[in-house]
Design a protein around this nucleic acid. Structure first.
Lengths: 349, 349
DNA sequence: TTGCAAGATGTAAGCGCTTACAACAACCTT
DNA sequence: AAGGTTGTTGTAAGCGCTTACATCTTGCAA
């Protein structure tokens, strides 16, 4: 069935622009102008059209509009998952920004899988989106070529690729992670474990890991292969990873985690082993989602500008769509947030 | 600019179905059939079309398709917020279900505000969505009239309205909340506080409150006006509400909360007062999001079938769209989950 | 061989809207 | 008063696709 038929009722003729024009005693062009560029229509005419629209209950047909104007007023967003609160917040901000400009948001998830992201991307292009928001910058060149050849404005969120010429709205994951590592070192920790999200196709996870690893290395505290666990982003995975790291002969005094969910999972693992946090084990997260302050002790973490990224990406995409020229990328700060899950290292028995 | 022009490059002609037809040596009708109903085209012809499509890099124009087929293959979802993990999960399940059937998801949020929901709804209708998913059942009759008169299939999630003839995919909030109250009573609690989400336009919050209130009343444990706090769904609000309830001369021994976020907030409040949970204060939540097991002690709560609701709503909407007849509503169970945040009431000094 | 049903393809009429261009009116300017 | 602006509206040509219907093949029964 179509949106205008079926259902068992009367055929129910949906009014078209032509019906409005007839009733208002003007041409369809005037109706169209009256609706889209009211300032170009005399007030009296405009009112006549408005009242005809009202009595008929007219709504422009989307397909007709799209076909004729070659614009869908739709922007697509492909994020790894909606389960993580952080993407959800950015998405929400993006949606609000777009809604204010009368643009709707098409949403799809990739589950951190590059091929799924590409499939979703193709679907969105086929849907004729006017612009696209993506997370991160690591993808095969073909993807960027596709986007570029289609001339679809797109924004890369969450990262700050200085080797890519594309519009990005993000922050420096490596630098923020390095700062966490620095703080951990300053508090005297030397035996440190790192719990990371999987790094395939995930530049953020890679950058955070390398930020931590290089900072530790620079300070003579090299991260060995088995000081690092790669896993999915779930409480369970964080817990399992923590148990593994804490089972080692010389137990770490601090666990740096790739995000808050992993950190909360790690806390659960530590608790299972009867370790007091932060007295016997320090834990840090990344993202500063609500979870970070819901757990006890509250998580030391990095505040990521999720809402600002969403809002900014939306505005810049709209700007690009309207102007036809790619705006400049934006780099936001990501602040270190000190809370009680991190404290001085005490000598372990 | 349009999605096909601008950007400073060559005019860059996008191939149309006609170009494909010409190259493949067939008519546009055959190309269309070859793409949409391949079984109605001979294999040889189909291959010729396929290769023409490939060499030209053809993608059907969305506007043309919509206009001619009177279908957008798009479904809209309007949820209160994406910040709450629970809606996010349902949304994700919905999106995956739709994607598998080649339908895309348009998302908007209402911030729990009825007028915002209506505005978003109108936008979606204007976008010609083939179906709509909404949360809850409490809205002015005009909204349902609009939906019905437009003959747009829609599903109400999260609730189970037996007084409404519309398609719903939900669970019994009142019954689940009543069960929580019953357990709390059984453990000997008599001084009980309730922290609820705001109830205006929110039937789920209302149902949960009334389920708890009536169960308590039936057991001679009437909820007084100041035993209840209504607030927004945030950790801070939950914390503030808990502080208020716990400041009363006869402190409650149990706090029943309208959802897990409020419960986690309440835990934070209790902790601030130095109260041990569950020994000095029991707390229960609702929803069973990840947060419930991330906090310590883990929250006693109600498991809401978020993913199943998303999947089912998606399937039923698609079924309705294809068949033209409204499917039967679905009622899922919502199980009580016993965890350590709830324990026996001990006489308070 | 003929006739016919079933299958494959082509023809062409829209779907409802926007917009370039033309037409006209009203108002200045010189 | 003629010519030129500026502002308002109408005319009509598409935008790219689907699909009802017509036409042509093919295969097979009689």
């Amino acid at each position: 069935m179509t949106i205008n038929s079926g259902g068992g009722g009367t055929p129910h003729k949906v009014p078209t622009i032509e019906d409005v024009a007839r009733l208002a005693g003007v041409s369809t062009a005037t109706v169209s102008r009256s609706l889209n560029t009211p300032e170009r229509v005399r007030e009296g005419t405009r009112n006549a059209v408005a009242s005809a629209v009202k009595t008929l209950g007219y709504t422009p047909n989307f397909g007709g509009q799209v076909l004729a104007s070659r614009r869908t007023n739709t922007i697509g967003a492909i994020i790894p998952t909606m389960s993580n609160a952080i993407f959800a917040k950015a998405l929400q901000a993006l949606q609000e920004t777009l809604a204010a400009r009368n643009v709707t948001l098409l949403v799809a998830t990739s589950q951190y899988a590059p091929d799924q992201e590409q499939a979703q991307l193709r679907t969105m292009l086929a849907r004729g989106v006017d612009g696209i928001a993506l997370i991160g910058n690591e993808r095969p060149p073909e993807v960027y070529e596709l986007l570029t050849s289609r001339r679809v404005p797109f924004a890369l969120m969450w990262s700050h690729p200085d080797n890519l010429p594309y519009l990005s709205v993000g922050f420096d994951n490596a630098a923020a992670a390095a700062e966490v590592a620095r703080h951990v070192l300053e508090l005297g920790h030397r035996r440190i474990g790192y719990i990371s999200g999987r790094t395939i196709g995930n530049d953020r996870a890679k950058a955070r890991l390398s930020g931590v690893a290089s900072t530790l290395a620079e300070n003579g505290c090299e991260l060995a292969a088995d000081d690092v666990v790669l896993c999915d982003y779930s409480l369970e995975d964080g817990e399992t990873a923590a148990l593994r790291l804490l089972a080692r002969r010389t137990r770490p005094t601090a666990l740096i985690c790739g995000n808050d969910v992993l950190a909360a999972g790690a806390m659960r693992g530590a608790r299972r082993l009867g370790l007091a946090i932060p007295d016997e084990l320090s834990i840090t997260g990344f993202d500063d989602i609500d979870l970070a302050t819901a757990v006890s002790p509250a998580l030391t973490t990095v505040r990521v500008p999720h809402s600002r990224m969403g809002t900014t990406a939306g505005n810049l995409l709209l700007e690009w769509i309207d102007s036809g020229t790619q705006p400049k990328s934006v780099l936001f700060p990501a602040d270190f947030i000190f809370r009680s899950s991190l404290t001085e290292a005490v000598p372990v028995p």
